[in-house]
Design a protein around this nucleic acid. Structure first.
Length: 510
RNA sequence: GCGCCCAUGGCUCAAUUGGCAGAGCAACGGACUCUUAAUCCGUAGGUUGUAGGUUCGAUUCCUACUGGGCGCACCA
């Protein structure tokens, strides 16, 4: 047997406790425990359960040993409950076993529900079963309630460890657990919303021979037996629209997309998007759908359409403000760009201190001005509508102006949370747009989109008028949970690998 | 990719102008059958992220590296 030489002192002590338990014929890792109630049930239903026998299981999260009687709190998924363990109730042998237990161990208890002198609902334990012995000590977080204030001491707060060892974060920080429960409910609520509208949930490829549907650099991977490179999808769009061609009137997909870009508070290399495509509808319909959907989700999750983020409170109740991109820019810069030539706009960009030399065309300059001067001010929920055609190769031309497309992006708290348009279904126009993108790519725009012949072929068979939408789930969850960083709403955010130790990192570079 | 900041027992944090690395919690031993940040007495725990340098002497100053945070760039 391999001796645990590298164990630190605390781990060594726990290892020895496991050996002692084995010597007492206690299995530290048994197979099953049958519960009758959860911790929350017992606390909530004290009126019915007081004096009754219950069986509850959970992880020991606090421990107050005092001679021949002890108190502890055990925590399960939904709550915590105090247990009262007395030597005269469980017997001397079991009590010796209990004395070997630590914070972090899992136990199952059976006993009578009662209230302590101080009024806390508790279980007077008559049977105690060790369910799993922990070898590594948890960071201890202490808390107390004083004058209605919930005070936390020695909170486990090192963000690096919290993200790398999310399991520990979840164990000791209940508010983190709540965020991910909310995330799950948000997705559930959104799915229900679309089910009720009769849309079909589908799955499309993540590994794609041609990536498309967004401006982004992809991750590349390789398929061995086909001996071809494949790309991890940057969006679901082109496949979902093929399904509209195929005859489904409404399809949606929750899925991970992957973009090989920088990482920060708002960007993780893999992120979750919900994309939706609806036949016979346009972007006006989609705006109404978005504001109704978000408001409904907020109501279901938080009980209100008001949300507070970094000390500002807004209301998500429809209707949201709709603002044309040109008007939004004029509102903030006093420049009306509408109908201006590329050279004029380039000049205005210069006057506004935008680095126009880095921007290849008119559309990109307008977008640059917008992002710099307008975006940060879009705190209240707002639809920015009618975008320049150059930056929207998959959107349909505006019914009133061929230089624009019918497209909108919803903004909340200064952040884009989605993207939608009346989908381009004219195959001849679509081919031209792809060709224009290819031209931009040639001129060095490495995020320009690439021609997808099969997609154009699908359009050539005919796609009905269609409205499409993509919603960034992570950002929506950030807003609805008040989380300042995307890493707070992704269970396992991308991190650099932990260091391997000094003698394992030799053959790098070369 | 660039700039600024951070890294000290298991956890949360100290350490004066460079002068013996310390505390609380957790742990270990003892007391304790209604405690709840349990309490009381005692004990142990550290190559200060890594590798160099300056110095009689480095947690402290310098350089490089690793990891993280924030901002910028890129993007959603």
């Amino acid at each position: 047997m391999q001796l645990p030489e590298d164990y630190n002192e605390l781990k060594m002590i726990r290892y020895q406790k496991i050996e002692e338990l084995k010597n007492m014929a206690v299995n530290p890792y048994p197979y099953k425990f049958t519960r009758t109630h959860t911790a929350k049930d017992v606390v909530k239903q004290y009126d019915e359960l007081g004096g009754e026998q219950v069986s509850v299981a959970g992880r020991i999260m606090s421990l107050r040993k005092m001679g021949r009687a002890s108190f502890a709190h055990i925590v399960d998924m939904h709550g915590k409950i105090q247990i009262y363990v007395r030597e005269d109730k469980i017997g001397q042998d079991n009590y010796s076993m209990f004395r070997l237990l630590d914070i972090g161990d899992f136990v199952g208890v059976t006993g009578q529900v009662f209230r302590t002198r101080t009024g806390e609902t508790s279980i007077l334990v008559t049977q105690l079963t060790l369910l799993s012995k922990s070898l590594r000590s948890l960071p201890i977080v202490k808390e107390k309630v004083e004058a209605g204030q919930h005070l936390v001491y020695d909170k486990f707060s090192d963000v690096e460890m919290r993200y790398r060892q999310r399991y520990v974060d979840l164990v000791v920080n209940p508010e983190v657990r709540k965020v991910f429960v909310k995330r799950s409910k948000i997705i559930g609520s959104m799915r229900r919303f679309m089910d009720e509208l009769g849309f079909l949930e589908v799955e499309t490829p993540i590994l794609q021979p041609i990536y498309g549907g967004a401006f982004a650099r992809p991750f590349v991977t390789h398929h061995n037996s086909l001996d071809i490179d494949l790309y991890l999808r940057i969006s679901n769009e082109l496949y979902l629209k093929r399904l509209i061609v195929g005859g489904y009137d409404g399809v949606f997909e929750f899925g991970k997309d992957f973009r090989n870009e920088g990482m920060d508070r708002f960007h993780n290399p893999e992120f979750t998007q919900m994309e939706l495509y609806v036949a016979y509808q346009d972007y006006i319909y989609m705006m109404e759908l978005v504001e109704n959907m978000i408001a409904k989700i907020a109501g279901e999750i938080n009980g209100t359409t008001k949300v507070t983020f970094q000390n500002r409170t807004i209301d998500l109740k429809p209707p949201w403000r709709r603002l044309r991109m040109y008007e939004a820019i004029e509102e903030k810069t006093d420049y009306n760009l509408y109908g201006k030539s590329e050279n004029e706009i380039r000049e205005i960009g210069k006057n506004l201190d935008i680095d126009v030399n880095a921007l290849p065309n008119k559309g990109k300059i307008i977008e640059g001005i917008f992002e710099e001067f307008v975006e940060p001010h879009l705190i209240e929920p707002t639809f920015i509508i009618d975008f320049p055609i150059e930056i929207s190769p998959l959107a349909k031309k505006h019914r009133d102006d061929p230089n624009l497309v019918e497209r909108f992006e919803p903004y909340i708290f200064g952040r884009e949370i989605g993207n939608a348009f009346s989908e381009l279904n004219d195959p001849i126009d679509q081919r031209k747009r792809f060709e224009a993108q290819m031209e931009m790519k040639k001129q060095g725009d490495d995020e320009a989109q690439v021609m997808d012949e099969d997609y154009v072929r699908a359009l050539e068979y005919g796609m009905p008028p269609t409205a499409g939408l993509g919603i960034g789930i992570d950002r929506l969850v950030m807003i609805l949970t008040g989380s300042p960083s995307i890493r707070d709403v992704i269970l396992f955010p991308q991190m650099r690998p932990e260091s391997l130790g000094p003698n394992l990192k030799m053959d790098e570079d070369v």
